[in-house]
């Protein structure tokens, strides 16, 4: 008896497998035979993904710039009163180390500060030679892991003994963070709208394809095809169109951006002082995102437009 059940189970699995194989085969076959209509779907999916790619690269580059700038401005300079005893210096150092978010604290003597200034001034450095006395104070350079914590830290440091002044680039950083926030919000909004629009476009394109084959669906129902069997090839077809569209978009966006990157990156750095995202780094991400979105909207588009036609 058990053997009989086992056998029955195997037969059912074999049957399901054959049906599944048929669905895939027909998906490919009907894709080929409806290639005119398919071209429209593929083109619209590609176009949408390409726009998406441009927006995505823009956002990533700006994010890159923000991160870059954040790193450059994550220092807090604490200027000290003159001639502090080593006990006071130690106590300042200890207190600062105890605050959250502090990565390192480094003492910079007035001589070092002057040296750095000379280097910064480079060719004009000789002007500093004429100074009789070093006007610069001793200082501490504090590095923090998140510039957002800086405000609180600065207030704490100001309260310590022996501090003359605390300097950090609060304004620059505030503005940058607000700007970055806007860009990210706008980017997400644009991507959201694009995905919505593309699902709409694809479902319409496939709706035309499906309604052109209304008869076919009708016949399939009369021959006793289940809804799943009818839906399968269409979804498969939509999925394939999506993937093909995605591959085209990936190739165009990657090589297009690679070309742009190679010819423009240095020039842009000269103007905006930040680098674009390296195409090689984002290639895998773009491929995954495009593939998923392409296949997703292809399949979803088919499903949406098929729903109406299945009630015979």
């Amino acid at each position: 008896m058990e053997e009989w059940y086992e056998m029955k189970r195997r037969v059912v699995i074999a049957l399901k497998f054959r049906i599944f194989k048929n669905i895939i085969k027909q998906g490919f076959q009907s894709m080929w035979r409806n290639r005119g209509m398919g071209l429209a779907s593929v083109t619209s999916i590609s176009a949408v993904l390409m726009i998406l790619g441009v927006v995505l690269i823009l956002i990533l580059s700006i994010n890159n710039a923000v991160l870059d700038t954040k790193l450059k401005f994550d220092e807090i300079e604490v200027f000290l009163e003159d001639d502090l005893s080593s006990e006071v210096l130690d106590s300042i150092e200890d207190s600062v180390k105890g605050y959250p978010g502090v990565i390192s604290i480094m003492f910079r003597s007035k001589e070092q500060a002057l040296q750095i200034m000379k280097e910064d001034w480079a060719d004009e450095g000789y002007l500093l030679e004429g100074l009789e006395e070093n006007p610069l104070p001793d200082s501490y350079i504090i590095k923090v892991n998140d510039i957002v914590l800086a405000d609180k830290l600065v207030n704490n440091v100001k309260a310590l003994d022996g501090i003359e002044e605390v300097k950090y680039y609060k304004d620059v950083i505030d503005k940058l963070l607000i700007f970055a926030g806007y860009i990210q919000f706008a980017g997400i909004a644009i991507i959201g709208i694009l995905v919505f629009v593309s699902i709409f476009i694809i479902s319409n394109t496939i709706k035309v394809a499906v309604s052109a084959r209304r008869r076919e669906i009708n016949i399939m129902k009369y021959v006793g095809a289940t809804n799943g069997y009818i839906r399968g090839p269409f979804i498969m077809e939509g999925l394939l169109f999506g993937v093909i569209g995605a591959i085209i978009a990936i190739v165009v966006v990657y090589f297009g951006y690679d070309y742009f990157f190679n010819s423009m990156n240095e020039k842009l750095y000269a103007i905006f002082t930040f680098y674009l995202v390296d195409p090689k780094i984002i290639f895998a991400d773009i491929a995954i995102i495009f593939g998923t979105i392409g296949a997703g909207i292809g399949a979803l588009g088919s499903m949406i437009s098929l729903k109406r036609f299945l009630n015979v």
């Binding site: 008869r215 016949i219 129902k221 009369y222 021959v223 006793g224 289940t226 809804n227 069997y229």
Partner: peptide, 16 residues
């Protein structure tokens, strides 16, 4: 669908 498989059907307009 399973009932339709028990009934073959032929139409005036062939429906191929």
């Amino acid at each position: 669908p399973y009932i339709r498989r028990k009934v073959g059907v032929v139409f005036q307009d062939f429906r191929l």
